[in-house]
Design a binder for these strands. Structure first.
Length: 227
DNA sequence: GCGACAG
DNA sequence: ATCTTGTCGC
């Protein structure tokens, strides 16, 4: 069950056209939550954002690490809000090639549906992989919401242009909420459940949190090795 | 024209 | 996101 291939847009205008086209392919279905391996992805940057370091962390249902992989490569596309996927997907795909275990579902560090054109990094990656994917962002890109209660697990719908595009979730007492939205082959309730089931004692779910640490550590080690 | 703006 | 040491607090 493979997905589409990654196309490289020449500029932001082309990227926008591509997103509007890909948006039609997204499928938000109910998710049974029945995964064996879940993969978190994150990208760190060095050399003034010229080089990207992607990390993929695969966890089992007990949240124990089952596999991981990293990749580093020059990043071409600039960071433009709303077009993050064109900047991060190439190096992410490279990292995923190094996995020996095949994940059932993916969590991305960024938005899914909660995006200006309804196709954030989580959605785009999901289409390419052809697997359930969701986004968990640390800050808002688009939408409006009411403050969730300051209690673990509480949430409020994230509204954008009259539609609910995700959930603003309090993943820890008193901590800033995170923005959860479906990417592909999953719905809002499913995405919320996956996040709640992969939280440990931190604000971010373990797959993404550990992928972030791995990417940071890899970057740190490689910059000292080169100089 | 003025702000907002994932990582 | 990145550049960066120590420091306050659970």
């Amino acid at each position: 069950m493979n997905g589409i291939s990654f196309e490289v847009p020449k500029n932001v205008a082309q990227a926008k056209e591509l997103q509007e086209e890909l948006r039609k392919e997204l499928e938000f279905c109910t998710y049974d939550g029945d995964w064996r391996y879940i993969c978190g992805v994150d990208v760190a940057y060095s050399k003034g954002s010229r080089v990207g370091v992607a990390a993929a962390m695969v966890l089992g249902s007990n949240l124990a690490i089952e596999d991981n992989s990293v990749a580093m490569m020059d990043v071409n596309f600039p960071y433009v809000p709303g077009y993050l996927s064109f900047r991060e997907i190439p190096v992410i795909l490279e990292a995923l090639k190094g996995l020996e275990v095949e994940p059932d579902i993916f969590i991305v560090d960024g938005q899914g549906l909660a995006h200006p054109r309804g196709i954030g990094l989580g959605c785009h990656l999901g289409l390419i992989l052809g697997k359930p994917t969701l986004g968990v962002a640390k800050s808002l890109l688009v939408g409006e919401f009411e403050e969730p209660e300051f209690v673990y697990g509480d949430w409020r719908p994230l509204l954008y242009k009259g539609n609910t595009v995700g959930r603003v979730v309090r993943t820890r007492d008193w901590a800033k909420p995170v923005f959860v939205s479906p990417g592909h082959l999953i719905d809002q309730e499913g995405a919320y459940n996956v996040v709640m089931n992969t939280l440990h004692r931190y604000r971010l779910p373990e797959p993404t949190r550990l992928a972030h640490l791995l990417a940071e550590r890899t970057k740190r080690e490689s910059r000292k090795k080169k100089k």
